[in-house]
Simulated scan of single mutants.
Amino acid sequence: MASNNGLKASEMFEGQVHLYKHLHAHAVDGMSIRWMIELGIPDIIHNHDQPITLSELVSILQIPPTKVRGVHSLLRYLAHNGFLQIVRVHHNTQEKEAYALTAASQLLVKGTNLSLTPMVEYLINPSGSPVWSHLKKWTYEDDLTLCDVSLGSNIWDFLGKNTEKNKLFNKAMASDSQMMNVALRGCNWVFEGVESIVDVGGGNGTTAKAISDAFPNVKCTVLDRPQVVENLLGTNHLKYVGGDMFKSIPKADAILLKWILHNWSDMDCKKILENCKEAISGKGKRGKIIVIETVINEGQDEHGITSLKLLMDVKMSCLVNGKERSEEEWKKLFVEAGFQSYKISPLTGYLSLIQIYP
């Protein structure tokens, strides 16, 4: 039986499920992850050294009896979404349901080198939700970002004027850099012949420190906004420079751009890359730029990977007038900035390492 719009009833019901799934997940998905962190659930399970039952968790957290049903509901939903694993254990002569960590929730254990808790605390923040309520207004405001429309300034000026937000942002980027360092450990070939490198927008130097430790002969420089690096202390092989990548970049054999270019328009990226090209010129040997970014490839990537990349593209496009790019878009950008060749290599589940040469 067809409806007036030509759809079968079954198709309409499927459409309703799809719509409602996204509508109801709008707030719950992110905030339930933040809830896990705020209650310390990943830490409790980690320290328990084995899967934990609901009754044990409720006892540790001293949850009121009236809230146990709701807590169970949240845990079951988190397990369905891959943030917990439900297993069966023997407890006091009975077989019970228990919760174990997954790869995703292992990354939410605080205090570990690979904890992404700071990223959650920065991105899943109740104060950030109103930004996205201005999407309609943003659509009709020529050349203004969603941050311009909702906050009254671009994201970088906003962070510069809000100390606590800036701290959260820098901690989030540092936590991501720890994950990046795991990926870079297997990329020794990238640093062969490199004696000096500048990490542009390198924050507190997490990645530069990892490079310096792994390659003691490489002199590392972190270039970032003056307010980011002003109180940071360097070493013999690592120094911090406050500056503006749109004006100049310190000379080096290689320039690292990790999660930088997706923040900017093609015109801005061209300027950044031209400054990078100037920075590696005159060294007497062929320098290179190392770019770590996503490369959109809907034809070959898994659906989940493409979903993340397209989601990131929405955020970059709306929030900062940036973009995630396909290989064709990257190639066009490199050519316009005066580079002769490039090579793309896989790095993490969704990021690629791109080496570009003058």
Rank of each mutant, 00 (worst) to 15 (best):
W264H: 09
K331C: 09
I272K: 00
A104Q: 09
T235R: 03
S3N: 15
I155N: 01
L101Y: 00
N321L: 11
T221Y: 02
I356M: 12
P64C: 06
L273Q: 05
G193A: 07
T112Q: 13
E302I: 01
P118T: 03
K96V: 08
E274T: 13
A103P: 02
P358Q: 06
Q16E: 11
S196F: 03
S317I: 08
F215T: 01
L257T: 07
N113P: 01
L151A: 07
K315Q: 08
S248D: 15
A183K: 01
G193H: 09
I41A: 06
S3M: 15
T348G: 06
E141M: 14
L74Y: 03
L144I: 00
S3F: 12
T117K: 08
D29Y: 14
D301W: 10
K209A: 06
K332A: 15
N81A: 10
Q62E: 11
T112L: 05
T235Y: 11
I255D: 03
V222E: 03
S127N: 05
G349I: 05
K96E: 14
R325N: 05
L101C: 04
V335D: 10
A183L: 05
M267P: 00
E324I: 07
I249D: 00
P64V: 11
L19K: 13
K171T: 13
V149D: 01
T145C: 07
L308R: 09
P130T: 09
A98E: 04
S153F: 08
D148R: 05
A98Y: 00
W35L: 11
S307H: 13
K8F: 15
Y122V: 02
S115W: 02
I354C: 01
W138V: 01
R225V: 05
L57R: 02
L319S: 01
N166W: 12
